[in-house]
Amino acid sequence: MIYVKNISINYSNKKILNNVSFRVIHKDFFGIIGKNGAGKSTLLKILCNITKSYFGNVFINNRNIRSFSNKNFAKIISFLPQYIDTTLSLTTYEFILLGRYVYMNMFKIPSNDDHVVVKKVMNFLNIADFSSKKINVLSIGEKQKVLIAQVMVQDTDIIILDEPTSHLDIGAQNDILKILKYLTEKHNKTIIVSLHDLNAAGEFCNRLILIDNGSICNYGTPEKVLIQKDIEKIYNTTLIVEKNPISNKPYVILINKSNKKS
């Protein structure tokens, strides 16, 4: 479905991504992991057609993303950036409705269909109760659900999210990732997500890529990517990788050597 072919990009003579290639298949829950500054956000911005000055090509269903108009592209891919200003004094409903922009008429006045979609998504995410609440007074967890709702109402086959669970407690993290998993399984969406939490990545993603210094280190199922020596080397820390006894997925346990029993 998505084919990333030999992507490279430099900023001020520094290589941010170096010859990155991978494929994402339909209905994939695809995770991108790597330490801070590894190039995850840059890669996502390239996939979303935000950053365009790169070498290499990205194809969606065999069509180069450079050839899409803004409008057509917005009907295929929606994006949740890492940082988003939620200080605007818009109601939750007004804010989510902006996600329907690409479907609106010339004056960008929402149609009945737009309102139906927004209400449906808000009910699905259990946020209908605060539709008239201002977005700037919501808690971080609630805000994140609103941002996901805005992405969902755009109704695209591919959803790309840049660290959607950062700053959230584990309960809220779990909620968000379960929603995303549900979207791939029940609504045939393809999800590409960058994550810091390796355990969440191992538990929820079908496939992962591990990036270090702009290059792909490991690529494949969580079992193939979350390899103890590779993770230890890249993150420069000591850890062990075990199997989750319930899900059989790999999980990472950090070790503080000074706590080691003698």
């Binding site: 592209f73 949740l80 950036p81 200003d85 902006l98 922009y101 929402p110």
Partner: peptide, 19 residues
């Protein structure tokens, strides 16, 4: 509504289909 969209974050606006 177009001005509403333009008041969102730069990277978000670019993926909403607006020039």
């Amino acid at each position: 509504n177009i001005i509403n969209v333009l008041s969102l974050d730069e990277s978000k606006i670019k993926t909403l289909g607006i020039n």
